[in-house]
C-alpha cells in the first residue's frame, strides 16, 4: 500500500479524522473548505502531530501513536507541494531546486537537476528569483524541488487554487505526467470537482 493512514486530531473545536488506504496513482482527498484536508496532509508530512492513529507510506511506519513512532518531517522523504508554492524568496530558482537535493542521502537521489529541468521545462528559469515567476512557473519549480529532495511520494495541497485558468491546464498536465511517467504515488487535496475528476485515480471524500 502506498498510503495507509488512520489519524485523528482535535484542532480547536474541530475533530479531524480520516482513514484511508490507497495504492499507487493519484488519490484525491476531496471535500469542502474547512474539512481539515490540509491538516491531514500536514499530519502525513509530519508538520502536525496526530492525537492518535498511524501513518504508513510505502510500508514504512512514519507515525504510530501506540508504538510511539514519530519520524521527524525531514526524514520522511515525502515531497510536499503547497498551494502557494512556498519557494524560498532569498534563493534563486536553481538553489530552490537543489535545496532538498543537497540534503538528501546520495542513495535517495533518484532524479537529478538536469532531468527535472527537462521534465518540467524550467530551464529558462534557473537564474530567476522566485518573486519574478508567474504562478504556473512557481508551481512547476515547487514540484521540481519536491522531486529532487528524493521524495518517495508527493503530497499536493490545492496546487492549482491560486492559478488562473490558462495556468491551471499547464500545471495539471505536469501533474498527470508526474503521476504516469514517474509513477510517484500522490495524495492530492482539492475542493474542485472537475479538477478531481480529471486527475484522480481514486477519490476519497472527506468532511
Amino acid at each position: 500500500m502506498s498510503f495507509d493512514i488512520a489519524i485523528s486530531r482535535r484542532l480547536g473545536s474541530r475533530d479531524i479524522a480520516l482513514t484511508l488506504v490507497a495504492d499507487a496513482g493519484l488519490t484525491v482527498l476531496f471535500g469542502p473548505s474547512g474539512a481539515g484536508k490540509t491538516s491531514v496532509l500536514n499530519m502525513v508530512a509530519g508538520l502536525l502531530t496526530p492525537d492518535s492513529g498511524h501513518v504508513r507510506v510505502d510500508g514504512v511506519t512514519l507515525f504510530d501513536a501506540t508504538g510511539r513512532i514519530d519520524v521527524p518531517p525531514d526524514r520522511r522523504r515525502i515531497g510536499y507541494v503547497f498551494q502557494d508554492g512556498r519557494l524560498f524568496p532569498h534563493l534563486r530558482v536553481r538553489a530552490n531546486l537543489l535545496y532538498g537535493w543537497r540534503l538528501a542521502q546520495p542513495a535517495d537521489r533518484w532524479i537529478g537537476l538536469d532531468a527535472v529541468v527537462a521534465f518540467l521545462g524550467i530551464g529558462d528559469l534557473l537564474d530567476r528569483w522566485p518573486r519574478s515567476l508567474s504562478g504556473g512557473e512557481a508551481q512547476r519549480v515547487a514540484i521540481g524541488r519536491a522531486l529532487l529532495s528524493g521524495a518517495r511520494t508527493l503530497l499536493m495541497d490545492e496546487p492549482l487554487a491560486s492559478l488562473d485558468a490558462g495556468r491551471r491546464g499547464e500545471v495539471m498536465t505536469v501533474i498527470e505526467r508526474v503521476r504516469d511517467e514517474l509513477g510517484l504515488p500522490i495524495l492530492y487535496v482539492t475542493h474542485d470537482r472537475r479538477e478531481a475528476e480529471r486527475l484522480a485515480t481514486r477519490m476519497v471524500a472527506m468532511g
Binding site: A45, G46, L47, R76, I78, Y80, F82, Y99, L103, A104
Partner: peptide, 9 residues
C-alpha cells in the same frame, strides 16, 4: 515547514 519536508532539520 517547507524546508523541513525537504530534509532540513
Amino acid at each position: 515547514g517547507a524546508a523541513r519536508t525537504l530534509g532540513a532539520g
